[in-house]
Nucleic acid binder design. Structure first.
Length: 425
RNA sequence: GGAGAGGUGGCCGAGCGGCUGAAGGCGGUCGCCUGCUAAGCGACUAUGGGGGUAUAAGCCCCCAUCGAGGGUUCGAAUCCCUCCCUCUCCGCCA
């Protein structure tokens, strides 16, 4: 959420941001609503002041009698007030609703563009493997080895699910452990193991609500399944005032992530590219405003370390204004090359939000011990997505015989296993 | 799930219809005192919003906020209702 003062004082800044994003939004109505809201507020407050004044007088007059006329007058004002208050409430609700659906303002350095086509590839790392056979997609490799079960998952749950079996399950767990260990032991993150369900307020905090409800699973009790650990992590300090010395705070969490993929019908339907439940290690930071870009850069590098250690070919892109999500000021993606799919696959998305989420979560800090609290800034990124990494390993490390070599760094996490051979059922 | 207790400022805690935006304490800031330190004394010390003045800060007025929402009343932290959360006991349970 943006600072409401921007609407009044610098609406052009918002208008420019919307233009850059190519985002449809009725800014003029928002501005008009804000003006109307303030007019009503003034009217309401002056009547309340009058009423308070009368009540005080009534208190004083009670003993000597003769408060009846004052009471009468006060009741009259009360009636006027009730009508005005209702108008104000309505204006406020309209305003809040629109504010909640206004996207963040991209940083100046974000490339301007309309779509994915305009994203900027910053660099590529690692060499795609060379095969003297046609590399196969991960679902073929996985099913043949008996380590990925799509049919079974479809029967027990439905389309867009996968079950890891045997060495497949061990491999995904190894990836998770390797990632968590690296981030907590080498990069200074505090490990967090949060709930997988969150309440409406928390989803609002990360701005998944109200605008993106159709992407989420909701329980009959009104909980939401988290679409990413970003949700619990960003809400760890709701309504708190942190000390300046605590910042920056680094959190790393492994969680399952649940997405309805409602808008993705027909897209990536095969394999485990796009599933309703996937697993991911997430990195998240609470920082002081001035630490923004520098900390994001470190976060991206922390994620890259994982891909480098796994010796997977990847590239880093910067998303253009048109392709960036609703919440970020700036986003960098890491994409891993998958020979079987013959495409670059997003495996991490690292974004900084400024105070956009902190304002919604009401997470503040005191710059100085006595100073007024200010909103912290937040950022997060995958470090990295385990399911897609597993997929990438299968495709990059596949052998002509159908087996898959296990990356060096993962072997200690797999009881020394060096190669995945067919599971014997 | 059942029974009970409770949610008040940065923290602890009093208040149970007007004199309470909130006693008292802790913590903090400034000043006094003091050979140093400790102790002591005094003043100040919630947040958000609207307006005025000034526009470097500041100063003044008003409104709201005592878990959230609603109600009673001229007037609610205080009374009533609903919901949320915490704690204790019982039940169930990986």
């Amino acid at each position: 959420m943006l600072d409401r003062r921007l609407v009044r004082e610098e609406p052009e800044k918002i208008r420019q941001a919307l233009d850059k994003r190519g985002y449809e939004f009725d800014l003029d109505t928002l501005i008009a609503t804000e003006a109307q809201r303030r007019e009503l507020l003034k009217a309401v407050e002056s009547r309340r002041a009058e009423k308070n004044e009368l009540s005080e007088q009534i208190g004083d007059t009670m003993r000597t009698g003769g408060a009846a006329a004052l009471k009468e007058r006060s009741t009259q004002i009360g009636i006027e007030l009730a009508a005005l208050e209702q108008e104000l409430d309505e204006a406020e609700e309209r305003f809040d609703q629109m504010m909640a659906e206004l996207p963040n303002i991209p940083l100046d350095e974000v490339p301007i563009g309309e779509s994915e086509q305009d994203n900027v590839v910053m660099y590529e790392m690692g060499e795609p493997p060379k095969f003297d056979f046609a590399p196969r997609p991960h679902w073929e490799i996985g099913e043949q080895l008996g380590i990925l079960d799509f049919q079974g998952a479809a029967r027990m749950a439905g389309a867009r699910f996968v079950t890891d079996v045997g060495a497949g399950a061990t491999l995904e767990r190894a990836l998770i452990n390797f990632m968590l260990d690296t981030h907590t032991r080498k990069h200074g993150y505090t490990e967090v193991f949060p709930p997988y369900l969150a309440n409406e307020r928390s989803l609002f905090g990360t701005a998944n609500l109200p605008k993106f409800e159709e992407d989420l699973f909701k329980t009959t009790d009104g909980y939401y399944l988290i679409p990413t650990a970003e949700v619990p992590l960003t809400n760890m300090h709701q309504d708190e005032i942190l000390n300046a010395e605590q910042l920056p705070i680094y959190y790393a969490a492994y969680t399952a992530c649940f997405r309805r993929e409602a808008g993705a019908a027909g897209k990536d339907t095969r394999g485990m590219v796009r599933v309703h439940q996937f697993h991911k290690v997430e990195l998240m930071k609470f920082i002081k405003p001035e630490q923004g870009s520098e900390e994001l850069e470190k976060l991206v590098k922390d994620a890259e370390v994982i891909l480098q250690a796994l010796e997977l070919p990847y590239r880093r892109t910067q998303l253009c204004t048109g392709d960036m999500g609703f919440q970020p000021q700036q986003t960098f993606d890491l994409e891993v090359y998958c020979p079987g799919l013959d495409r670059w696959l997003e495996i991490s998305s690292c974004s900084q939000y400024g105070d956009f989420q902190a304002r919604r979560c009401n997470t503040r800090y005191r710059p100085q011990p006595q100073a007024k609290p200010e909103f912290v800034h937040t950022m997060n990124g995958s470090g990295v997505a385990a399911g897609r990494t597993l997929l990438a390993i299968l495709e990059n490390y596949q052998q002509e015989s159908g087996t898959v070599v296990i990356p060096e760094v993962l072997r200690p996490y797999m009881g020394g296993m060096a190669e995945i051979l067919p599971e014997i059922p």
